[in-house]
């Protein structure tokens, strides 16, 4: 098999696919919470993706890709058997939730890709794991069966009520805590505004919250500072200090502003590939 070959590809929602990539070097030491950086071709940009599952036996790593920019669209046009130009990792630090016993995972959109391996890992360590998974609508929910399997309780919620309850992940989390559920940690992954909202709620509720920051990156090894963010008043790099941080200390407004830096250029590229 070629290095970085697409071994399987599965459509999960109308603009989200799961890719299984042959990457024996990456899979050797990777752990939940880490990420890879890939390039589709020799002229491509470097884009980070969280590792959502891996198989050491098969030598493969799974990533979840939402088609929102140039590279993700380009990737969506690649088929099983084709190989990516580059696929490097595992980068960043693995998740460390050892001090917690009862955890609520909160996933929004493709953030579910990150919480799925966490759920498996945490359950295997004998912890109590609930998950709240949210999406705009039913078509954008993914990994539902896998998550149901991996957690003690799975709670679905959609913005339009097309599956599960109607509302946001924060509504569900608030309800769970109000009904008497006790968590010593919330682990939230999703779009920045969602993580910001979850952190605002859990600060009120007094629950420690860990978030996974999906900043833009170039090298992913601490060389450029593209992924920097402010945590507890200090500049940190998502690539080597993270990607996971204490959510109550993250400056989300700054992170949101930084995520929009190339919005204009990106639009032009996307138009060029959509034709």
């Amino acid at each position: 098999m070629k290095n970085f070959e697409i071994v399987s590809k599965r459509r999960l929602a109308n603009n989200v696919s799961e890719y299984e990539i042959y990457a024996p070097y990456v899979v050797k030491h990777c752990l939940a919470g880490q990420f890879v950086i890939l390039r589709t071709d020799a002229d491509g940009e470097r884009v980070p993706f969280t590792i959502c599952d891996y198989s050491r036996e098969r030598g493969t790593v799974r990533i979840l890709v939402q088609e929102i920019g140039y590279t993700t669209l380009k990737l969506s046009k690649m088929e099983v058997g084709e190989a990516l130009a580059d696929f490097v990792g595992p980068l960043g630090n693995p998740t460390d939730l050892t001090e917690f016993k009862s955890i609520c995972l909160v996933g929004g959109g493709i953030g579910t890709a990150v919480i799925y391996p966490q759920a498996k890992q945490l359950r295997s360590e004998g912890k109590r794991v609930d998950a709240v998974v949210g999406a705009r609508n039913q078509n954008l929910l993914m990994y539902v069966e896998e998550m149901r399997e991996a957690c003690d309780n799975l709670y679905l919620i959609t913005d339009d009520g097309s599956n599960g309850k109607k509302g946001f992940v924060t509504d569900m989390l608030k309800e769970l805590v109000a009904s008497g559920r006790r968590y010593d940690c919330v682990f939230a992954v999703g779009p920045l505004p969602m993580m910001k909202a979850v952190c605002a709620l859990t600060r009120e509720l007094g629950i420690k919250t860990v978030v996974s920051m999906n900043s833009m990156m170039v090298d992913g090894t601490g060389m450029c500072g593209c992924c920097r963010l402010t945590v507890c008043g200090k500049t940190k790099y998502a690539c080597i200090d993270g990607p996971e941080f204490d959510g109550h200390e993250v400056d989300f407004d700054e992170a949101i502003a930084r995520s929009r830096i190339y919005r204009e250029q990106e639009q032009n590229h996307v138009c060029s590939i959509r034709g």
Partner: peptide, 8 residues
């Protein structure tokens, strides 16, 4: 594409 200290 090999980060020594991470990949190996």
């Amino acid at each position: 594409d090999v980060v020594v200290g991470k990949t190996l």
